[in-house]
Simulated scan of single mutants.
Amino acid sequence: MLSIAVVEPGRVEAVDIPIPSPGPYEALVKTEAAYICNATDRKLVAGHFPGIDRDRYPLLLGHESVGVVSEVGAKVRSFTRGDRVIGGLLLKPTSTAYSSGWGGNSEYVIAVDHAAMAADGVADEAHGWVEVAQVMKKVPTDIPVEAAGLLCTWREVYAGFGDFQLKKGMDILVFGAGPVGLSFCRMARALGLRWIGAVDPLPKKREKAVALGADEAFEPDAPALTGLVQRRGAPLDAVIDAVGSERIINAGLPLIRMAGSVCVYGVVGSPTITVAKDRGPYNFNLFVHQWPTRTAEADAQDPLVEWIRAGSLRYQDFLTAEFPVREAARAMRATEAPDAIKTLLRF
């Protein structure tokens, strides 16, 4: 079968490996489409994802896939043939030539039946369970495949609202208008937050943020941003760093109220973060969300599906390019375009 590999940092190729065989609690999923993750996948391609050393290359790429179940193991109860499923991976590559960079950009992937394993008392590593199994879930057939694939991103962002303690009526500012930042803008509006601002250096991204729910969008370091609290007459409840940057963390501190929050979403590249605490109020919260809270991520799917059905959350607002999977190297380069949001690989 076809799989997308980073054969060495900076080089992406389509490779051929054997089709995996599902275990008793596993379903074999034939991939329909997969999205490139602008953060994780690009860091893996560049060779500087935290915790992934150079000796792990070559590795199989991807973790935002959607496909149809073609075969199920004997003890699977949550999936049947023909179901559309998201979150399938290839954590155990079928070729010893490769390690796993989650391996979701493969023609066939494996979805683990977490519910069945938990019910049978075998949801542990000794029986092949992995924590990400909690978000390998069936998607209703009326949800377009493009929207189903985006649920991999949207569920994580929706869960972030709980981790960051963001509530209706709050005022927030989102730094970064990429897929995550734009998702925060759209969902914050749908969840009833009062005022939403966005910050991005690119005019088109700022325009998109406003179109998706932001009240205002700012260029970094612009007077309108640095004077925001004075102009509004009140500080913000929270600043969201949707980039993962020490500079943004410290830029957000003067903007938040007493006991407000700076919320960091995504993997921070540096092993340390220096916080200039004197720039903020005496009391403030610093939330760092580098890995999904799986139970919250799984619970996010049902409300998101209802938003998709209602037209409140549209894949067309996020999908900016798509490529045949064999052109994954070209697709990866396309993610670097200034106006790129989400790039789809079609199988």
Rank of each mutant, 00 (worst) to 15 (best):
146 E>G: 10
3 S>M: 00
162 G>Y: 01
262 V>H: 03
168 K>L: 05
30 K>W: 00
134 Q>N: 14
6 V>Y: 03
63 H>M: 08
28 L>T: 09
172 I>F: 06
147 A>F: 01
42 R>M: 13
234 A>W: 06
294 R>Q: 15
120 D>K: 14
52 I>H: 04
58 P>Y: 09
21 S>Q: 12
316 Q>S: 15
313 L>P: 08
142 D>T: 05
213 G>C: 08
74 A>Y: 07
39 A>E: 10
312 S>R: 15
328 A>N: 06
268 V>K: 09
93 P>W: 05
78 S>V: 00
206 R>V: 09
279 R>T: 10
258 M>C: 10
93 P>R: 10
260 G>N: 02
296 A>E: 10
137 K>L: 15
171 D>W: 14
319 L>E: 07
82 G>R: 08
193 L>R: 08
128 G>H: 09
212 L>C: 07
3 S>R: 00
112 V>N: 08
35 Y>S: 10
232 R>Q: 14
132 V>R: 09
170 M>T: 00
332 M>W: 03
115 A>G: 03
85 V>G: 09
338 P>L: 04
5 A>Y: 01
303 P>K: 00
63 H>E: 08
346 R>C: 08
294 R>E: 11
275 V>Y: 03
138 K>Y: 08
101 G>H: 01
68 V>Q: 12
138 K>E: 09
345 L>P: 07
258 M>D: 12
344 L>M: 13
102 W>E: 11
259 A>T: 06
163 D>R: 15
247 R>L: 10
103 G>E: 01
61 L>E: 04
310 A>C: 11
213 G>R: 13
64 E>H: 03
14 A>L: 11
345 L>D: 03
187 M>C: 07
43 K>V: 00
127 H>W: 12
249 I>T: 10
207 E>P: 01
180 V>R: 07
105 N>A: 10
293 T>L: 14
38 N>V: 04
30 K>D: 02
46 A>W: 06
114 H>F: 13
229 V>I: 07
143 I>V: 15
137 K>H: 10
111 A>D: 00
167 K>C: 04
113 D>N: 12
201 P>K: 02
237 D>Y: 09
336 E>D: 11
306 E>V: 11
147 A>C: 00
266 G>W: 05
78 S>A: 15
209 A>F: 06
282 Y>I: 11
215 D>E: 09
132 V>P: 07
203 P>I: 09
44 L>F: 02
34 A>H: 03
166 L>R: 08
239 V>T: 05
40 T>A: 09
